Amino acid sequence: MTKKIGLIDYFLDEWHANNYPAWLRGSAAEQGLDWDVAYAWADTDKPGGLHTDDWCIAHHVQRAGSLAELVERSDALIVLSPDHPEHHLRLSELALQSGKPVYIDKTFAPDLATAAKLFEMAAAGGTPIFSTSALRYSEQLVALPAGINADSISHLSVTGPGAFENYAVHQMEMIVALLGTTVTRVKSLSAPNGGRQLLIEFEGGRQASFLQINNAPFQLLLQPKGEAEGYIVPECTGFFPELMKQMLLFFESGVPPVPREQTLAVMALLDAGRLALDRRDEWISVAR
C-alpha cells in the first residue's frame, strides 16, 4: 500500500513546493519505495500567485481540509515555508505531536531558541525530526575521501550567493557537516556595501571562512592538516537528488540522517553570524 506524504506550507506557490512533489516521486521510483506526495495544506495563498486549489490540481495532490486532517491522513510530513522560517514553530506543532517522521525545510528556525523548542516538541511527541540544507548533499561533498573529516581539516573556505537571512544556511551547513559542532566564535570582516565575510573558529585552532556575494556560485576550498594537498570544488552541484533520497529513507526508517547537534550548531552559527555582521571586527561567541 502506497504511503502518503503530506506537505505543510505557509503558501504553496514557492520554488521548493513547486519542485519537491515531482522530485520525491521520481526518487521513490528510482529506489523502489512506495511513497507518494498525496496531500497538501497551506496557511494562506501567495499574493499574486496560485491559489492553493490550483496548485494542488497542477501537482496532482489532494488539498486537505485542515492541518489536522493532513497530519492524520499522512504517513510522513514535510514542513516547507523555506523563506519564512518564522512560521515553522506554528506550522509544525501538530506534526511534531504525531509520532510520524517530519522533515522541516531550510532554514530550520528563525533562531537557536526556536530551534531548541522544535526539538523539544518532537521529543515530547515521540516524533522523528530531520532538517538540513540540501548543500550538505552536493555530489562533491559526498565524494570527498573518508579521511577528510573534522579531525583532519585545518581550514575550510566556502562561498555562495543570496541574502544572509535565507541563503547563509547553505554555507553554514557545509561548514558544520565537514568541521563538526565545536565552533567557538565568529568575526565579521565585511566591507560596507560589499559582500558578507565571516571568519569562524573551532576548537583546536581549526578555521572556516564564509563569503557571500550576490551572484557567487556555491564553492568550497579545503586544506587538510600537515603537508597534504588541498581540495578545490569550483561549484557544488547535484544536491537535490541526494536530499530527496535521504528524505525518503528517513521516512522509511524514522532515523534522522543529520544529528540534532549539527542542526543546532548551524542555527547557533547563524545567530552569531547575524550579530557579527552588525559588529565588524569583533569576536562573537557562538552558543553551545
Rank of each mutant, 00 (worst) to 15 (best):
V233C: 01
P259C: 12
G230A: 05
R196K: 15
E282P: 09
F218R: 00
V176C: 11
D271T: 13
P241A: 03
F218V: 05
S27Q: 12
T181M: 07
V233H: 00
Y39L: 09
L277P: 03
A146N: 11
L118H: 10
F239V: 04
S74P: 14
P145D: 12
V186Y: 02
W283K: 02
D271G: 15
P259K: 11
S253W: 08
I148H: 12
N149L: 04
K106M: 09
I5Y: 01
L80T: 15
R206D: 07
N149W: 03
L211G: 04
E173W: 07
Y167W: 08
S209R: 03
V176L: 08
C56T: 04
A17F: 06
P257S: 07
G204N: 10
L135Q: 05
G65E: 05
M244A: 08
D36C: 05
T52K: 01
R206Y: 10
R73P: 02
V176W: 04
G230E: 04
L12C: 03
R90W: 14
A143L: 02
A95N: 04
T114N: 14
L249R: 01
G48E: 03
A40T: 04
P257F: 11
A64Y: 05
G205T: 12
L189V: 15
S66T: 15
G205L: 04
R73V: 08
R288M: 06
T263E: 07
D45E: 12
V258F: 09
T182W: 03
Y103A: 01
A228L: 04
K106R: 14
E139F: 07
L249D: 08
L243N: 02
E282L: 06
P161S: 10
P110M: 12
P21L: 01
V37Q: 03
G6C: 06
A265H: 03
H16R: 06
Y103K: 01
V186S: 12
L211A: 13
Q62E: 13
H59W: 01
Y137V: 08
V61P: 00
D53S: 10
L24E: 00
M244I: 02
V183T: 15
A150Q: 14
P82Y: 11
M244H: 11
S253V: 06
F250Y: 05
D36M: 07
V61N: 00
L270K: 05
G65V: 06
A276K: 01
L221P: 00
V158H: 02
P47R: 15
A29D: 06
K117N: 12
R260G: 09
P128V: 15
E72I: 11
P21K: 04
F202W: 14
L198D: 13
F130D: 02
L70S: 02
L77Y: 09
T132L: 08
K117M: 12
G65N: 09
V158K: 00
V102G: 01
